[in-house]
Nucleic acid binder design. Structure first.
Lengths: 193, 193
DNA sequence: AAGTTTGTACAATTTAAAGTGTATATCGGA
DNA sequence: TCCGATATACACTTTAAATTGTACAAACTT
């Protein structure tokens, strides 16, 4: 049955597999799979696509395309591109894997740190009130103090996450984990082969 | 209404908030929220808990506890602890935030790299067959070559992810992004205050 | 101004994930 | 060997996320 497939169809099949693979990876990143399909469609088209073309390529509704592209532009992994003589919105995508990884990774974690720092602040205030309440027994005060220590430790942890985010966002990560294997490694590799 | 709450209840309320916060964070990590509630319950109990106690603390079914604890032990963020004279399984959890982050983060990404490298290998084989097919036109061959280049680039990217995972797993990340702010920063901070 | 084209709001549907309850296999003690 | 206690398999229900279709508003054309 596969034998009957034309070579063109086989190439299409490979592209489809890659597309699904990227889609699956998006799920692992914590984002909708459809984002991956959109990236693949635009990449293989080799040009900016409009919503109708994307719906066509992904086999999904135009509504969904609208939703997903909005999400993607909000994360800066897609952007509108002006196309002469067309009223439609055309979209291009970030094609650098590494940058896409960094962008999505940092967007997610920034959200986490912001949310948590807010909550920790509220918790701290709440604990302070309890601690300073005139009816607070020594036991109550001790417990409140424990929880405040926890909260402080938690804040330090989220500040660490913030610095991790900064490490990626600034591209400094490539200093410590380069895209290409080190030259020494390359040499060693060559000798072995 | 809040005014009527006893101080003890207020402390409980704070703990509950923290528990929900951790639960929410687990979702952001890409894991079930319940994992966070389990971590909080055991942490606040200050000792290993059994499935019934966990169901009690989280307000969930024992079945769910069984499922979640299995998942947690598989990720090495929970483990069984022997408790004298009890037939029940008691569980403790990793209490170091940083370690939990690293463990979950690396588990997720390791899975991703393994999955992708497998797929890329298959794709490479498929493309090779197409390329070497006697009926392949120059256009077909050129396209297959392009896709092979893509695949190679993709593999290099996942190897980079693997090295990122290794950076965290080996704890080397703390060399570049220390838990505690640097001494210089500390000093600067002191002077400002 | 009337008629098109386009994108998206909104409610409804589908699909996938989380969680439950009953039934059962396994184990340790009498 | 039987009994009670425990964890989990499995099928079912609930909840949340992804996706669609219809309707409409804004912008563009004539």
């Amino acid at each position: 049955m596969n034998k009957k497939m034309s070579l063109d169809d086989q190439l299409e099949h490979v592209k489809h597999r890659v597309s699904e693979q990227i889609a699956e990876n998006m799920k692992s990143y914590g984002y909708p799979a459809t984002i991956g399909r959109v990236i693949a469609a635009i990449y293989y088209a080799g040009r900016a696509l409009d919503l109708d073309e994307l719906a066509e390529h992904t086999g999904m509704s135009k509504t969904r395309m609208s939703q997903v592209l909005r999400e993607m532009t909000s994360y800066n992994i897609a952007e509108k591109e002006f196309v002469k003589g067309s009223r439609k919105d055309h979209y291009t995508v970030e094609e650098d894997y590494y940058q896409t990884f960094i962008t999505l990774f940092t967007a997610n974690w920034r959200e986490v740190t912001i949310r948590n720092k807010k909550i920790e602040q509220k918790i701290m205030e709440e604990l302070m009130e309890i601690y300073e309440d005139e009816e607070a027994t020594p036991e109550i005060k001790a417990e409140a103090e424990n929880l405040m220590e926890d909260s402080k430790a938690s804040i330090r942890y989220f500040e660490w996450i913030e610095r991790i985010v900064e490490l990626f966002d600034s591209q400094d990560i490539f200093k410590y984990v380069p895209k290409d294997p080190l030259d020494e490694d390359k040499k060693a590799y060559r000798f072995k082969n």
